[in-house]
């Protein structure tokens, strides 16, 4: 009985963290912050799926959804920030290639 209760608490905590990460991702107004939180959300989602007995899908989500998708969105967010900074201070050229 206590084992199932502990598991239920574990499940609830997993889902609350997942939903909290989703809300944080969707409600952050800075695109770069949103992109980083989106990667965290994807990694947490893959943990949840591993809990649900889907290790294949968890691997794919961690590698493709969070990794590659996150990298795509992150580089797009960097470009959006660079272009908006270029608009903010027009005379100086934008910093095209910040160090990685």
């Amino acid at each position: 009985m206590t084992a199932t209760l502990a598991l239920l608490i574990f499940d609830v905590l997993m889902l609350l963290t997942l939903l909290g990460l989703a809300v944080a991702t969707l409600s952050s107004r800075d695109p770069r912050r949103a992109a980083i939180l989106f990667i965290a959300f994807g990694l947490w989602l893959s943990l949840v799926w591993a809990r649900l007995g889907a290790p294949d899908v968890a691997l794919a989500e961690a590698a493709i959804g969070a990794g590659l998708g996150g990298a795509l969105i992150l580089s797009a967010a960097r470009r959006a920030r660079a272009s908006s900074q270029a608009k903010a201070r027009a005379p100086t050229p934008p910093e095209r290639t910040p160090p990685v």
Binding site: D56, A60, I64, L68
Partner: peptide
């Protein structure tokens, strides 16, 4: 076991992404 073409392809693509980030 868990694995397959999609996961393997994603890992190779991640290697490519790292190379691009490295210049």
């Amino acid at each position: 076991a868990p694995g397959g073409a999609f996961q393997a392809g994603a890992l190779l693509a991640a290697a490519g992404v790292i190379q691009r980030l490295g210049g």
